[in-house]
Amino acid sequence: MLRLLALIRGALFRRMMYRKKGKIQIGCGLLLYAKLDIRGPGVVRIGRNCIVRHSPGNRFHYVTIYTHSTDSHIAIGNEARFCGARISCKYSVQIGDHVLIEDAGIHDTDFHSIEKDRGVPVGESKESCEITIGDRVGIAARSIVAKGVKIGNDVIIGPGSIVTRSLADGVFALGNPARPIPPQSPICYDGTRPTKSSQSHGALP
């Protein structure tokens, strides 16, 4: 029943987006369980069978997809699932198929410069700032993907991590900055040397 309602809501949303003259293209089978907010002058393309939800328990954390210039281009693949994701794009954000993004932020610009006037950030270009996210990637809650990051296929990004460097295929990354850690514990956060001290701190009671 809920699924049917979500399907109808998604179809209506797609219908509404036809008015934007091809700027926003959404594939068929969109399931809208919560509000989806698409704003801005850029191009947004979303693939087939996507699912949009709010973050669990709090329907004010809905999904926002904002574009900040006419050149900006967001492409999202098929069967993506969003739970309260926030995407804002000035240059380009490319997201692959079968992606799960929970209440994380993806921003491909700094919005302001570090000069005192806080104007347009200097030294940003499309090549250096575009974000590419591969297929079957999971980005967990409260993490941030910064500009110029390339994430490979089959990557999991743990909760609360800040991704500022590119990640290879099939890693599990965590922390600030997000570094790949070996799967299945032993918990070794620097990824290279599993020492005893990195596994547990102090003696157990």
Partner: peptide
């Protein structure tokens, strides 16, 4: 701080994202 599969001993202060240090 981000605490992931960690054991923190009693009366310690844990710092870092992910937690890399804890001080008595």
């Amino acid at each position: 701080a981000v605490c992931f599969r960690k054991t923190i001993a009693p009366y310690h202060l844990a710092i870092g994202n992910p937690i890399n240090r804890s001080i008595a």
